[in-house]
Amino acid sequence: MTHGPVAALKPERIAINQATTRKQWDFREAVEGYARHGVHWIGAWRDGIDKYGLAEVKRLLADNGMSVTSLNRAGPLVGLDKADRQLALDDARRALDQAAEISAGCLPVLPGSLPPGSKDLSGVRTQYQDMLAELLVPARQAGVPLALEPLHPMVAADRSCMNTMTDANDLCDALGPGIGILLDVYHVWWDTRLEAEIMRTGKDRDRLLGFHVSDWLVPTRDMVFDRGMMGDGVIDLRLIRGWVEAAGYDGPVEVEIFSSLDWWTRNPEDVMKISLERCRTVV
């Protein structure tokens, strides 16, 4: 399928996930720093609430004109014994309440995967669907969509039993309203079905909840903590953004870079400047 040329990204659509400056700035510094650079969307992490409390977090967001794309995160939910699964569900409900308090756009739910000694990947995938169905009840009551984020197959054994956009779309079809997909290019860029599955989200206007950008470096020195700055790797970011927008998504485009070997060692002001410049020129 072909689509028309992709227009330059409007500055007001740019979001920054706290992960991008996680080692340099805490929540307060991130909110104030992003706002200082003209960014008013943040992918927030729950440790900011733990440190400052909900009242202060809400004040910081309001004072800096900042909106929250997502609150990271609930889970892992599977690969646990019965008691730990209940603890995980209880914590996920707390996360839902926190997300509702700060008007977060969604709550990502990390699946988890195989427990020690297990090889039953199909079984944990079934368990994940069952636990999502249980969590959907309070999510719908809170008015906070649950976000499924397919993660690269390299983490299928430990972090996530859900690894493709097909997996995520199938879960959304099975579970109904109140659940959607957070698309992170780092995890799905390689998938031969990516365009088709992105177009599939367009059948439900509310299904695509977020769009995260970074880049895949060659060589990659660490599969989790060596993401590249947009334009430094092999992902055709503008092509994928074109697919996402053709499917009807017009929300924030969020920079999320985990980089212990590079970007987390740099001056966060420089990280911000380069992130914004790359959003304008290559995303």
Rank of each mutant, 00 (worst) to 15 (best):
M1A: 12
M1P: 05
T2K: 03
V6N: 08
P11Q: 02
R13N: 04
I14Q: 01
I16R: 07
T20N: 01
T21D: 05
T21K: 04
R22A: 14
R28E: 13
A30H: 10
V31H: 00
E32W: 02
R36T: 03
H37A: 11
G38K: 07
G38C: 06
W41N: 01
I42H: 00
G43M: 07
R46K: 08
D50F: 02
K51F: 01
L54P: 00
R59S: 05
R59F: 00
L60W: 01
V68D: 01
V68P: 02
S70E: 09
P76H: 05
L77I: 11
L80Y: 01
K82A: 14
K82V: 04
L87A: 13
D91I: 03
R94E: 12
Q98D: 15
Q98K: 07
S103C: 08
G105Y: 07
C106W: 07
C106T: 14
L107D: 01
V109G: 04
L110C: 15
L114H: 05
L114Y: 01
G117K: 14
L121S: 13
R125L: 07
T126M: 10
Q127T: 13
Q129D: 08
Q129V: 15
E134S: 13
E134L: 14
E134Q: 15
L136F: 11
L136G: 12
P138F: 11
A139E: 07
A142V: 15
A142L: 13
P145G: 13
A147T: 08
L148Q: 06
L148F: 06
E149D: 06
P150D: 03
P150V: 11
H152R: 15
M154R: 15
M154W: 14
V155I: 15
V155D: 14
A156C: 13
S160D: 09
M162E: 04
N163D: 08
D167G: 12
D167W: 10
G178L: 10
I181P: 10
I181N: 13
L183T: 15
H187V: 12
R193T: 12
R200V: 05
T201N: 08
G202V: 09
L208H: 10
F211E: 02
V213L: 06
V213H: 00
D215S: 13
L217C: 10
R221A: 05
R221G: 03
M223W: 07
R227P: 03
G233V: 12
G233Y: 09
V234P: 05
I235C: 09
R238A: 12
L239Y: 00
I240M: 14
I240C: 07
I240A: 11
I240F: 08
R241G: 02
V244N: 03
V244A: 14
D250K: 05
D250W: 00
G251K: 02
P252H: 02
E254F: 02
E256S: 10
D270E: 12
K273C: 04
K273G: 10
S275R: 03
S275L: 04
L276G: 06
C279M: 14
